[in-house]
Computed example of a mutant assay.
Amino acid sequence: MKGLLFAKELQAVEGDRVTVVTGFPNYPAGKIYDGYRIRPITREVRDGVEIIRLPLVPGHGRNPLWRIANYLSFFASLLVWGLFAARKYDLVYVYHPPMTVGFAAALFSAVHRKPFILEVQDLWPESVVASGISGAGALERGLAAMCRFVYRRATHIVAQSHGMADKLIERGANASAMSVIYNWSNSEPAPLPPRSVPGDAYEFLYTGNLGIYQDLGTAIAATRIAHAADSRVRLTMIGNGAEKARLAESLTDADRAFIRFRDSVPQEDLLEIVANADCLLLHLRDMPFFEFTIPSKIPFYLAMARPVLAGIRGEAAGILRDSGAAEVVAPESPDAMARAMVALARETPERREARGRQGAAYYHEHLARNQAIRRTRALFVFPDGDKSR
């Protein structure tokens, strides 16, 4: 998710005034973060950006009632706020998912006759149905109709991949009002030095959401196989999510000697942890809509100048192969991932450094933040036809 940095960068490009309207932070665990309390509305300013927080019901995971309550409560809060307060703004930019946010914006921007841009990171309703939420299939037709309405109403749509853009056009989006802008990394440090922690272990690191889509049971199974073949192989998973407890409970006492979990950490601490990893790992379930999904983890991993191991298909797999940094295997295949783990662990330090350099170079040439911000800002056309505010 782009968040505060995205808003700051947009303000810097043309001197725009950006207001972020969001809920109270509760993702991915479905619990309100420490230091926050749900109120009717709060306002704060961080790094020069005004942030308005609206009430919602916190809830993630497979429980359909909590997830629906989460989506609908924020939809209602945003719609009411937008009908009363959005008139003073020149343009609305919506980050999706969930599409209920886009639906609210489509309604209040129509009332106020304001342009709105929709950035699509996830394809609904497929991703909702595939998430494992019981009862989601019954809602599929209604969700699809809502999505078509929002696509038609949007002034412009930003898709995160070419495959996703094609799918959106098939569903009624205007091809002439469609752009593809790849995700970028919030962190763009100078290339990290070789791993500084001495020792014979080879550390694979996963960072991010420990959810249903990631199917990190595959990574755990692969690590068991790889560790049996090469005892240097280790796996660390950093983050939270709906599947974390179940995954942790699946470990045996023997597994805990070479597989461990850590809670989410601040970004500055994460960079230090990444610097002490040998290879960064990602995995997605083998589902059709992931053929055209490019996880935000990919630009972050490449920017970190580390080798990458990915169980993934489609457009994202092509990017990783082209980068020269990654070994890509079929998703949901512990055996294939384990073979790649052992092969990576046995590469020379020079080869590991070369992979990292190639990945960082690819990131800065094709995925860098400044390029994406300029392209995004160029899409802003205000009601009077002006492109500056």
Score class of each variant (00 low, 15 high):
A378Q: 13
R313K: 11
I373S: 07
R346I: 04
Q358K: 09
A336C: 05
A354E: 12
A354R: 08
V329S: 07
T348P: 04
E350A: 15
A378V: 05
V328R: 11
G324N: 08
P334T: 13
Q358E: 11
V381N: 11
G324M: 08
Q358M: 13
G356K: 07
L367N: 01
P349F: 02
A340I: 00
A325Q: 02
N370Q: 15
Q371Y: 13
E347Q: 13
R346N: 15
R321M: 12
F382Y: 09
R355N: 02
A345V: 01
D386T: 15
R346S: 13
P383E: 11
G385N: 09
H364Y: 08
I312S: 10
V329P: 02
R352C: 10
R352Y: 04
A338H: 05
S323H: 04
H366R: 15
E353K: 13
E315H: 10
R375P: 00
G318A: 05
A343G: 10
R321G: 12
G359M: 09
V381A: 12
V381S: 10
D386M: 11
A336E: 14
A372G: 11
G356D: 05
F380P: 04
M337R: 07
M341F: 05
M337Y: 11
V342H: 08
A340T: 09
A345D: 03
R357T: 00
E347S: 06
E327P: 09
L367T: 08
A360H: 12
M337E: 09
Y362W: 15
S333Q: 04
R374C: 06
T348F: 02
R369V: 07
A343D: 13
R313F: 04
V342M: 08
N370T: 15
R321E: 14
S323I: 12
E315W: 05
A345E: 10
R357L: 12
A326S: 12
D322T: 14
I319T: 05
R377G: 03
E347Y: 09
P334S: 10
F382T: 03
A336N: 01
A330F: 06
E353G: 12
R375I: 11
A354K: 03
E315D: 07
A325I: 10
T376S: 04
G318T: 11
R339F: 12
D384M: 08
R355I: 01
V381Y: 07
R377Y: 07
A317Q: 06
R369P: 06
E332M: 11
T348V: 09
D384F: 02
I319A: 02
D335P: 07
Q371D: 15
A372W: 09
E347N: 00
A343C: 07
H366L: 14
N370V: 14
G324K: 01
A316P: 05
A330C: 01
G356V: 03
I312C: 03
L320I: 10
R351A: 08
Y363N: 03
R357D: 06
A343I: 10
A336F: 08
A336S: 00
D384G: 11
V328M: 04
E315T: 06
R377I: 00
E350R: 14
I373E: 03
P331V: 01
I319H: 04
F382W: 06
G324C: 06
V329G: 05
I319K: 05
G356C: 05
E347R: 14
E332I: 07
